[in-house]
Write a protein that binds this DNA or RNA. Structure first.
Length: 260
DNA sequence: ATGGTGGCGCGGCCA
């Protein structure tokens, strides 16, 4: 038997909880990483999620950010910060689940190239890269997943000319993504043939989803020892079609269970 | 059209 892991920026878990519960029931992932929960921990709907068969671990804050991992097996060795960053923003959640090290990330958006938030994003990525060297050394079977707020290549962008050099597509952001791949991580989505114009996020404005004007910024990266077991990866666009959707769709990766 | 929509929370920030 294999297993499925997923990531979904749900842009408020309070609003989207019914959609998350429906999606869990239909898709039956072994693990779902959420970003932008926008809930303090005291308000996290752990009971509703437990009734759906999933344990929860979460690092929340009011109004902005917030990450959570829902899993069928218990999470251990939980981490909620990048080492060396004293950051009140809740964007990181690491846990060991079964024989898998899971790092759920809500990478900063960056707002616009050159802004303070963009500088923060690049510094954040530097800290992430340093941390990952240690994490990968300690955990051969590691998955890094979440909202990266980076479209790695032009084929991940509906209009690469219009987006050229802009935030989410700029050269320093893409270089940071390539350095993640340089650590041996594999972009699960690109391990397989995919339809052209495959995206994971569409702006709420200008009927972007209907016109498929999107970006692929939500990713599942697998360490070498895990990537060899990956058998599929896809975007599930169905939740983006619902009434009052998140602006992101879930991304799912499926793996064969390793013998070793 | 230098805009547009959505969440939070009630004015303005963030995406």
């Amino acid at each position: 038997m294999g297993f499925k892991i997923a990531t979904w920026n749900i842009n408020s878990l309070k609003v989207r909880l019914p959609q998350v519960l429906d999606w869990l029931a239909q898709s039956q992932p072994n693990l779902l990483a959420l970003q932008e929960t926008k809930l303090i921990d005291a308000d996290f709907p752990a009971l509703d999620i437990a009734n759906a068969g999933y344990q929860s671990v979460f690092a929340g804050q009011k109004t902005y950010n917030g990450v959570a991992i829902l899993s069928q097996l218990p999470p251990n060795d939980i981490v909620t910060d990048l080492p060396g960053m004293n950051d009140p923003q809740r964007r990181v959640l690491g846990a060991t689940i079964g024989n898998l090290r899971v790092l759920n990330l809500y990478i900063p958006n960056g707002q616009s190239v050159g802004s303070d938030k963009y500088i923060y994003k690049l510094a954040w990525l530097e800290n992430l890269l340093s941390w990952l060297e240690t994490e990968l050394a300690n955990h051969p079977r590691l998955v890094l997943l979440g909202d990266f707020n980076i479209a790695p290549e032009d084929r991940d962008v509906h209009d690469p000319v219009a987006w050229a050099g802009h935030v989410l597509c700029s050269a320093p952001e893409r270089a940071a993504f390539q350095r993640l791949l340089g650590l041996g991580l594999r972009d699960a989505f690109r391990l397989f043939p995919q339809e052209a114009h495959s995206f994971s996020w569409w702006d709420y404005r200008a009927a972007a989803f209907r016109r498929n004007l999107g970006l692929r910024i939500d990713h599942i990266l697998a360490s070498p020892a895990l990537a060899v077991d990956c058998i599929a990866c896809w975007v599930d666009k169905a939740p983006r079609r619902l009434e009052r959707p998140s602006d992101h769709a879930p991304v799912i990766a499926e793996f064969n269970t390793s013998d070793s």
